[in-house]
Design a protein around this nucleic acid. Structure first.
Lengths: 213, 213
DNA sequence: TAGATTGTTAATCGATTAACAATC
DNA sequence: TAGATTGTTAATCGATTAACAATC
């Protein structure tokens, strides 16, 4: 994987967006597209499209452009969406429920294999086709099967404790909805944070400063 | 507001993070902090801290540092969190419910004034202290009171139609959980997107390429 | 062949970091 | 005063854009 060393985060974070637009074009049975046209649709520069794609390989053809379906598949592979990383849901409250119902994890490289809760009323219930278990079963469950990642949908104050247990079980990849700083505590983890309140504050800033331009 | 012209998005998106860390320090009764120490805690460079803060004014004091509570308040003002922008929730499904229960909008510059649904079972119910209304009441409701923003928690395929109605009602600020590209359709809008699946794909990429370093 | 469009290098732009004089 | 730390300028680094030769 010579080229994929040292891909910048800026590029990586744009990949899902390429994948989305290409998937749409593919559904619309568009066969080929030039960097110029794709750039137009995505509202970026054609230069950026070509630079980004060329980080991973020469997927295009001079004089022709890119094959939509081929490029889509390339990016799917690059993103690793064909994986089936086993993930557990920590917290089956409003958030955990919403997220698990909203997303099709299978198409995103994951397989949700279990959910864990402290709320007795929820334990034993189902969420889609996964069972919601008592969080005390965490160790047994994770020892019985290899778990790659945890989706942290519990309140911040409960994260540290649970995180320690998860880390001890060898789980080093986290999708984190809390403000607890996981990678500060364990530097050898891979963490993607979703900070909704930060996002909303940014909207607030922009609304506050709207007419300034 | 001479200085706040032309603040880059990079800086703006860091503000909520400063605000969070300063709020914590303030709660811990820390009175003053130097850029060096704050940088350590936040895992950034001291240069960046000073540069960022100086976009908005000289809040520090040479030889002393920054007053935590004062700086926190300055950033709160800069972010506009003292506002009370009126917002409506479009879609009171799992997502809308989770978001509205999870966040304290009042502390984030917003006041949630109503929710709208198509699901007859939910209409008439409450979500916290707001009423869930039939989406057909949108026009009446928004004409009766000024609404600043809409939180879009409905599936992508329903967004365009509803968006047209909202835009017609003068709503130009959106917190968007769908993949519909609002600012592409209406360029004079302010939109913050939350693309959960993009985020999860990025996690997948990073997990797939973990050992590469 | 002529036209189109890539892959890639070079130029530009912006963001981050370093350095230090100003000053509390 | 001496020490600490800011505000700010200058240097570096990285990311984006432009340009164009290669080539389908």
């Amino acid at each position: 994987m010579s080229k994929s060393d040292s891909i910048s985060m800026s590029v990586i974070r744009r990949l899902p967006r390429y994948y989305r637009f290409l998937s749409e074009l593919d559904e619309q049975r568009v066969e080929r597209i030039s960097s110029t046209k794709l750039a137009q649709i995505m509202n970026v520069t054609a230069s950026q499209v070509r630079q980004d794609l060329n980080c991973f390989g020469g997927f295009g053809q001079q004089g022709y452009g890119y094959s939509v379906s081929q490029l889509k598949n390339e990016i799917r592979h690059i993103l690793g969406l064909d994986n089936s990383f086993k993930a557990i849901l920590i917290g089956a409250g409003n958030f955990g429920t919403a997220v698990s119902k909203h997303l099709d994890f299978n198409k995103l490289g994951f397989e949700l294999v279990g959910g864990f809760e402290i709320d007795r009323d929820k334990i034993g219930g189902m969420l889609g086709d996964i069972v919601i278990r008592d969080e005390s079963e965490l160790e047994d469950f994770c020892s019985a099967q290899h778990v790659d990642a945890a989706f942290m949908c519990i309140p911040r104050q409960n994260v540290e404790q649970t995180l320690e247990r998860l880390y001890k079980l060898g789980i080093k990849c986290y999708w984190n909805f809390s403000h607890f700083d996981i990678s500060a505590k364990y530097s050898d983890t891979v963490v993607e944070n979703v900070h909704l309140s930060d996002n909303l504050m940014t909207l607030c800033y922009r609304m506050t400063n709207m007419e300034s331009k």
